[in-house]
């Protein structure tokens, strides 16, 4: 702390910001400022948003955990790191994150905006991203947000990039909020139980999954509380402990939580199976959800946002957030209509 006490705040510039990671700067050089470019993660969700335009140069984001501060409950990690590696490292300190464990990279999960299967307990992934460093369409490293667990300095660029499919900037490095692994946890399953009733009687379950017949509940917390919550559930069904959640169909739908009471027809696909996340609104199903239309004014705002961040349309061209959103320049794909 020495030396800072007498520092006067200069009117502009001369910022005491930390130097950027050389790997991040090398990634920015690779991105450059010309030609269509996108990042390949692990390929687990590469089809989302539509196929990339032909001729798009594919890059890999830098990998590795930069610093984990268990006592701050934050981790700085490069976007190309796999979620599995991240979670293995966090587990060593008794921690975890809100990122999904379906495979894939940290950057991929954030670019898709996919929550954890147990996001009822872990929270949405967008709440976990504290600071983002991405490479802009003109090849610069841009930092949004801050490294502390609480921060409202300036506009919330971290939230904007979550779920943006690599169309606003290419993720290089992030600071994520971590959370302690609960003292205890167990999965319970019952046939024919009312999943919505379970939602109403449990305080903060980790997950409630439902396939139309059986319900799975993840309880997390202090062992005494697990026993109490299990006793509450036992009043409304024959629950038994199981090893874990069911197999999940590959596609994910996003519906209002109340919409799960009457699911859209034809969602399941040929296998006929689906698994819904009660209280969240995600449904794992055989068929993909059709791109959802939004009102014209929202579409216009989305178009202006894309144009502001990537005027030439070189970042992940062909991928589109909305059904009819045309790719500004490059052509190569446009939206799916």
């Amino acid at each position: 702390m020495s030396g800072t006490g007498t520092a006067r705040v200069p009117a502009t510039g001369a910022a005491p910001r930390r130097p950027l990671d050389p790997e991040l700067l090398a990634f920015a050089d690779e991105v450059g400022s010309e030609g269509p470019v996108a990042v390949a993660g692990a390929g687990t969700r590469a089809e989302l948003g539509g196929p990339l335009a032909r001729g798009t140069r594919m890059l890999r984001a830098p990998e590795g955990i930069v610093e984990h501060h268990p006592e701050e409950m934050t981790v700085r990690v490069r976007a190309g790191t796999t979620v599995a590696d991240l979670h293995a490292a966090l587990a060593g300190a008794g921690q975890r994150s809100a990122l999904p464990e379906r495979g894939g990279t940290v950057g991929g999960a954030l670019a898709v905006g996919e929550g954890h299967l147990a996001s009822l307990g872990r929270g949405p992934v967008r709440d976990a991203l504290l600071q983002v460093r991405y490479v802009s369409a003109d090849g610069r490293v841009v930092t949004g947000g801050g490294p502390t667990v609480k921060n409202v300095s300036g506009y919330d660029l971290p939230r904007l990039v979550v779920g943006s499919l690599g169309t606003l900037g290419l993720l290089g490095e992030v600071v994520l909020r971590t959370q302690p692994v609960p003292a205890g946890s167990c999965w319970l399953r019952a046939e024919g139980a009312d999943p919505f009733g379970a939602r109403d009687v449990l305080y903060r379950p980790g997950a409630i999954l439902w396939d139309g017949e059986a319900t799975w509940v993840l309880l997390e917390g202090h062992p005494e509380d697990l026993a109490a919550e299990a006793a509450v559930l036992a009043r409304s069904g024959a629950w038994r402990e199981v090893a874990g959640p069911p197999e999940l169909p590959p596609q994910r739908w996003s519906l209002p939580p109340a919409g799960l009471r009457r699911l859209p027809e034809g969602m399941a696909g040929p296998s006929g199976s689906w698994v819904a996340s009660v209280g969240i609104g995600v449904v794992h199903a055989g068929r993909p959800q059709q791109p959802r239309r939004v009102a014209a004014a929202s579409e216009e705002l989305t178009r202006r946002t894309k144009a502001a961040f990537d005027p030439a349309g070189r970042l992940s061209p062909g991928r589109s957030l909305l059904p009819a959103l045309p790719s500004p320049a490059l052509g190569g794909g446009g939206g799916r209509s």
Partner: peptide
Amino acid sequence: GLDPEPAGYDL
């Protein structure tokens, strides 16, 4: 939106 991962950017 009320769904967990609404369509479009998180505006």
